[in-house]
Simulated assay, not measured.
Amino acid sequence: MYKISEFAKLTGLSKETLRYYAEVKLLEPAYIDPKNNYRYYDDGSIFLATLLTKLRKIGFTIQEMISVMEDESFANLETLLIQKKRNILQQIHDLQLQVEEIDGFLASGKEET
């Protein structure tokens, strides 16, 4: 079992993030000591923390992460990842169009001078 500070160092998540994740039922401690309210995490929590870190890095919202964690079989994770990828690719396309608009606008300004 790991105290919250040890678990934070081990996973790269801050103590504040771990407390928040526990509050929203995203990653709850394996054990809370009733005497002093210390939070303890186990080895199984490391996998979940790693998964949550990955999901955050690829842009999942807290609500999307909760949805993944509620589906303990992770059956819908692939579908969610594919949809997230589609959304990112669409955003990239939209941004490329904006860049082209800017380039066109700048080019037209140079032609007039």
Rank of each mutant, 00 (worst) to 15 (best):
Q98V: 11
F47H: 06
I66K: 13
T53R: 13
A8C: 04
G109I: 15
L106D: 10
I66W: 02
K9P: 00
K15T: 15
K25V: 07
Y21S: 00
K110F: 14
H93K: 11
S108H: 13
K57F: 05
L26I: 09
R56V: 05
T113D: 09
L13E: 03
K57C: 03
R86E: 07
S14G: 14
L97P: 01
Y21T: 01
I66L: 13
G104I: 05
T50H: 11
M69R: 06
Y41L: 02
L81R: 09
Y38T: 03
Y20R: 08
F60C: 08
L80E: 07
A49R: 00
G44S: 07
S108F: 13
S45M: 04
E23Y: 13
Y20N: 12
Y21C: 00
D103Q: 15
K15V: 15
M65L: 05
R39S: 10
I4R: 00
I62Q: 03
Q90V: 05
N87Y: 03
Y38P: 03
L77Y: 03
P29W: 02
F105W: 14
K35T: 04
L106H: 11
Y21W: 09
L77G: 00
R56C: 03
D33W: 01
E100N: 15
E101T: 13
S5Q: 09
I92P: 03
D71M: 12
K9F: 04
Y41V: 01
V24L: 09
I4G: 01
Y2T: 05
A49S: 02
E16S: 13
E100L: 11
E64I: 02
I4N: 04
K84Y: 06
D94G: 09
T11Q: 00
T50Q: 12
S5D: 06
P29V: 08
K57G: 06
T17R: 02
A49M: 03
I88T: 08
L95D: 11
E112Y: 12
K110P: 08
M65Y: 10
T113P: 11
H93F: 07
S108M: 14
G44F: 04
A75M: 07
I62E: 05
F74T: 02
A30Q: 14
